[in-house]
Simulated scan of single mutants.
Amino acid sequence: MDIRFLVKGLIIGFSIAAPVGPIGILCIRRSLSEGYWVGFFTGLGAASADALYGFIAGFGLTLISNFLVSQQMGLKLIGGLFLCYLGLKTALAKPAESAATPSGKVVSAYASTFFLTVTNPMTILSFVAIFAGLGLGSTNNYWDAGILVLGVFLGSAFWWLILVSGVSLFRDKISADTLQWINRISGILILGFGLAALFSLTTKG
């Protein structure tokens, strides 16, 4: 096992996950409003999607990546509409009276961010560009490629673990009224990301 591929994957996964966008805002809001596990599985959904795209780029599956890139307008439309829906739902949501348990909302939390990340065409473009730039794409050594993808998942998951753990420290110190305002502000920001994605479709060509 070449540890260098694991380290490179960790750095790539962490770097792609870290910038705060709609997923980050959603993860923070859910951690505060619905508890640690819902927040963590929100991030884990994004980490799984990152690993999927890392798999496509790392194993040189150009047919799939080219198809996804060619369908980026449709993916952006779907993702933008879903962001608008999530934004409105978040803004109107009432703070949970208690933290959700692992058997509660974690599945829907995971699925929603996995879907959002997969429908973001910039994700696959980022992985293709990074892997190509580092000479990591289309490797003939599938073991190294697998280690690289594992590193991407662990790096992305590590970022979400750090974020959720940090945010959860403040949950008990925040009142219900403050959580309500966090819901509203987060919802507006997520809705803004969705509208921006939809608006970008009208500026092409």
Rank of each mutant, 00 (worst) to 15 (best):
E34G: 13
V118R: 02
I174H: 09
L52S: 05
S70H: 09
W159G: 03
L191S: 03
F170Q: 07
L163Q: 01
A109T: 08
V20I: 15
I185E: 04
A157F: 02
G146Y: 15
R30M: 06
T139M: 02
L150H: 12
M73C: 07
Q71I: 15
F131P: 06
Y85Q: 01
G54A: 09
L32Y: 01
A91M: 06
C84T: 02
G104K: 10
K173Y: 11
F131R: 04
P22L: 09
L6P: 05
L44H: 14
S33Q: 07
K8L: 12
Y142M: 12
K204P: 07
T178K: 10
I174G: 05
K105D: 07
G43L: 05
G137H: 06
M122C: 12
S156H: 04
W160P: 03
V107H: 08
G35F: 10
K94T: 12
G35I: 10
L116A: 00
R29W: 12
L116I: 00
Y53E: 13
G194I: 00
A91G: 07
G187C: 01
I182V: 14
S48M: 12
S186V: 09
L136E: 08
V69R: 15
L163K: 00
F67C: 11
F40Y: 08
R29M: 13
V149T: 11
Y53T: 14
T117I: 08
N140D: 13
K94D: 07
L75E: 03
V164T: 11
L75I: 11
L52D: 03
W160T: 05
V167D: 05
Y36K: 01
D177I: 12
I11S: 04
F199I: 15
G9K: 04
S200L: 04
L154M: 15
L134T: 09
I64N: 06
F67Y: 14
L92G: 13
F40M: 11
F41A: 12
Y110I: 04
L125Y: 14
L75M: 12
K105G: 13
T203P: 13
L32T: 00
I182Q: 01
R184F: 13
G135Y: 07
C27N: 10
F153I: 06
T117R: 08
F127T: 14
A49I: 02
I147L: 08
L201G: 14
N183V: 08
Q180H: 15
A145P: 07
W181D: 13
G194R: 00
I11R: 04
T203H: 10
P121S: 13
L26K: 00
G24P: 00
N66Y: 15
T42D: 02
I190R: 00
T113R: 04
